[in-house]
Amino acid sequence: MTSQRASVPAQLDHILHEMSEVRVTPKGERRVRVDLAADRLPTLLQLLKGHGGFLHLSSISCVDWPETDEFELVYHVWSYESKMLISAHTLIAKSPGRFVSVYDIHAPAGFYERDIHEMYGVHFEGSPNLNKFILTSWHGPPPMLKSFDTRAYVDETYAWRDYNPQWLKDIAAKGGGIEE
């Protein structure tokens, strides 16, 4: 599916040409979205870094798709030369939820992977450190999962303050007040 390659900048087209089965969607003058299979992602990052000057991995983001039981990982790489941002999207199965680390290509990935591991439970093989990062006293499931019920967790962990003064009752009697 390379129908949209025509509008992709020439030097990028040159790189993506070396890979098959990638879908390239230009999103703007300097933003490109790439969709590809998970096993090709490290190759793409390597090629972009080596041949396209995409040296800067600005972030890795993760989306939890409960309907299809998949995680979507998005790698954002930036080139200082062509001033262009490529977002590479890939889908991995939620179980076992494993993926390969790209720490050897972009060292900052170590932090992003540690963060995603903590918040979503994705395990990155070869990542230098997947210890607790921000949630030091956390014993529950990864909290950014859609299946995690924040309200139920709060109800059972924290106590609500009892506050029901007369003026609030008066407002409620007139049909106003707090609604959930």
Binding site: L135, G140, P143, F148, T150, R151, Y153, V154, T157, Y158, A159, W160, R161, Y163
Partner: peptide, 14 residues
Amino acid sequence: NGGMYWNSYATIKQ
């Protein structure tokens, strides 16, 4: 009482 983070898992309420 937690303010606008009333239903956040990460912040204390009182």
